[in-house]
Design a binder for these strands. Structure first.
Length: 271
DNA sequence: CCATATACCTGGCAGC
DNA sequence: TGCTGCCAGGTATATG
């Protein structure tokens, strides 16, 4: 479910409400992708200072240390009144004096990890290699073009790897490449500067638009208040195999790259 | 160092 | 109805 826009929409939907809250209780359910890394009880009494985002991670700053939250493939966060009984797939609760933050994650690819600081080993292992923020100042067409030039892998996989630019997941990678008219299989290093600039623009546009529309995502996304996205962003290619391209009417094709589905228009997108 | 495969886990769906 | 196989928004880690 969650690529950068969904994570950002989640953050925006509860960060103001939880800032300043005091941790009253912590409950862990079934194991998630990584262990919490501290005794749950050790967090009691700490204050939530703010919630930031790095790529697809949420960073919940505490008066001492921070929690790194990742939603994996199927995770979602809710922040609401306490007292609701935990369901089968609710695997982490942070009860505060301002409400209950709850991670719901059927597949358990998500995680909540405690770190003493962002520089700490655990945090660095997860965040240290991440590329630039696509919605931040560091993401220029110039650096993006330079980064693409240095890599040999197909451009789709360079985007997904998140070491050049973070937050572009499987859906938005296909969508951005469509908007830029670039085949997902094109070798990254062979993308000309003008085409790199076009892809840069497409990534910025598609992500910013998805955030603005409340985390578009094509299926069942809802923010931490339980509200759905507006579903205004309709996919041009993702999950549209065999359907007509909205631009040229050619049938959309599907292929597999690195064990992930990729969708593209064989006419609009050039190698 | 690089590129590709594997592992983690549950649920929804198409096809029989 | 129920079974089987495939597919799913991610990413650290192992392997070549």
């Amino acid at each position: 479910m969650p690529e950068l826009p969904e994570v950002e929409v989640t953050r925006l939907s509860f960060a103001p409400a939880i800032a300043g809250a005091k941790v009253l209780d912590v409950r862990v359910g079934l194991p998630l992708r990584w262990p919490l890394g501290c005794e749950p009880g050790a967090l009691l009494g700490r204050q939530v200072l703010q919630v930031r985002r790095r790529g697809k991670y949420l960073l919940i700053d505490l008066s001492t240390g921070l929690l790194l939250v990742h939603l994996g493939m199927s995770g979602s966060l809710r922040f609401g009144p306490p007292g609701l009984p935990a369901g089968k797939h609710d695997h982490f609760d942070l009860l505060t004096d301002r409400g209950l933050l709850r991670l719901h994650d059927p597949r358990r690819f998500g995680a909540v990890v405690y770190a003493d600081s962002e520089q700490h080993a655990v945090a660095q292992k997860l965040l240290g290699h991440l590329g630039v923020e696509p919605l931040g100042d560091g993401f220029s067409a110039q650096m993006f073009a330079d980064g693409l030039k240095k890599r040999q892998a197909p451009v789709k996989q360079v985007l997904l790897a998140g070491e050049l630019v973070v937050g572009v997941g499987n859906i938005y990678a296909s969508e951005a490449l469509f908007l830029a008219c670039i085949r997902p299989t094109t070798r990254s290093s062979r993308i000309s500067k003008p085409r790199a600039a076009r892809l840069h623009r497409a990534i910025c546009d598609v992500l910013a638009q998805a955030v603005a529309q409340g985390g578009s995502s094509l299926r069942d996304f809802s923010n931490a208040q339980g509200q759905n996205g507006y579903f205004q962003l309709q996919a041009n290619v993702y999950d549209r195999t065999g359907q007509a391209c909205r631009v040229c009417a050619a049938p959309i094709k599907r292929l597999v790259q690195g064990q992930r589905s990729t969708f593209y228009c064989p006419l609009c997108q050039k190698p």
